[in-house]
């Protein structure tokens, strides 16, 4: 069956292929073994992540956040069959493509706000994404609008409800944005505002923790 699948992307950890499953256009995500890792560690990690990803996709959906629909999990082959999001492009590409001073640019603030709200929804239901970046959120742009958000790549996700986990999750996002987008700080403020608007009081504790987590990042301000 997988012979009909065509590889479309090779990430650090998994390969993505497109094909058909039960008459539907699907994305097949496979985690090939890593030869550099000890076999025990490799199979444990692969299983754990495939399972965590499938679980998180279901939980995220229940939390009201759009994610690809899950069709099949094959733990033996560490494969997940899921919906291939129509016209989805990553938020990273979307931001990079935007022309300055256009209508789309003014929509960026509401996009970041929306992302903040979605992350808050995930956190409220105990879903920690674990690898939030602008490459792991899709948008489906239609003329002048970013369309619907879709969160992907839950491979490093876990369920937790501690403030620490939520703060670190936001911190990962912050770091990823700083290294990819020139206007990261402004965008991030918007994102956090969205998070606050949905989480309310709970967000204040998370932000307090976030300050502590930032302080742990040790040497990045040093300029020689």
């Amino acid at each position: 069956m997988s012979s009909e699948f065509v590889e479309c992307q090779r990430g650090a950890e998994a390969t993505l292929s497109r094909g058909t499953y039960l008459g539907k256009r699907v994305l097949l995500k496979r985690r090939p073994p890593k030869a550099y890792r000890h076999p025990h560690l490799d199979s444990a990690l692969t299983k754990e992540r495939t399972r965590a990803e499938a679980r998180a996709l279901i939980r995220a959906r229940a939390a009201g956040v759009r994610v690809p629909t899950l069709y099949l999990v094959d733990l033996q082959r560490s494969s997940i069959y899921m919906e291939d999001v129509d016209n989805g492009i990553t938020v990273k590409d979307y931001i990079n493509k935007i022309q300055p001073k256009t209508e789309e640019e003014s929509k960026l603030d509401s996009l970041m706000n929306e992302i903040g709200i979605c992350i808050s929804k995930l956190h409220s239901d105990g879903v920690i994404h674990g690898d939030l970046t602008t490459s792991n959120i899709l948008v489906t742009p239609t003329s002048g609008n970013f369309g619907k958000l879709c969160f992907i790549d839950f491979g490093l996700s876990h369920t937790a409800s501690t403030i620490e986990d939520k703060a670190v999750d936001l911190y990962v996002m912050e770091r990823a944005m700083e290294s990819t987008h020139s206007e990261a700080q402004r965008l991030l403020m918007r994102l956090l505002a969205g998070y606050l608007s949905h989480s309310g009081k709970a967000a204040e504790d998370v932000f307090k923790k976030l300050d502590q987590v930032r302080a742990r990042g040790r040497k990045r301000t040093m300029v020689g």
């Binding site: 090779r10 890593k34 890792r37 290294s179």
Partner: peptide, 18 residues
């Protein structure tokens, strides 16, 4: 060693892909 080095290789690979 096997554990901590695997973590380092994995994050390096992620940065490369990025």
């Amino acid at each position: 060693q096997e554990t901590v080095f695997a973590m380092l290789v994995e994050t390096t690979e992620r940065a490369m892909a990025h």
